[in-house]
């Protein structure tokens, strides 16, 4: 039971982070260089979070 709600939470986190990445990717082109750097930094952070969530999700499924 516990694990089911964990999975649901992970799925939500993944959904929310990927949506965030997608929105950020769309404005990337229009950003001036300085903002672009900042944005890329935040996007990389989000991408790492996504990777972490996916790894956890994999574990959940395998356990």
């Amino acid at each position: 039971m516990e694990s089911k709600s964990e999975t649901r939470e992970l799925l939500h986190d993944i959904e929310s982070k990927t949506a965030g990445l997608r929105s950020a990717a769309k404005i990337l082109r229009e950003c001036p260089p300085k903002e672009k750097k900042e944005l890329i930094c935040l996007m990389k952070q989000s991408a790492q979070d996504i990777l972490k969530y996916l790894t956890n999700l994999e574990k959940e499924i395998n356990s």
């Binding site: 929310s16 965030g20 929105s23 950020a24 404005i27 903002e35 900042e38 935040l42």
Partner: peptide, 12 residues
């Protein structure tokens, strides 16, 4: 609460 989403909103 998410910095990235804040940036996106600020831009739009």
């Amino acid at each position: 609460d998410e910095k990235l989403a804040q940036k996106v909103m600020a831009k739009h």
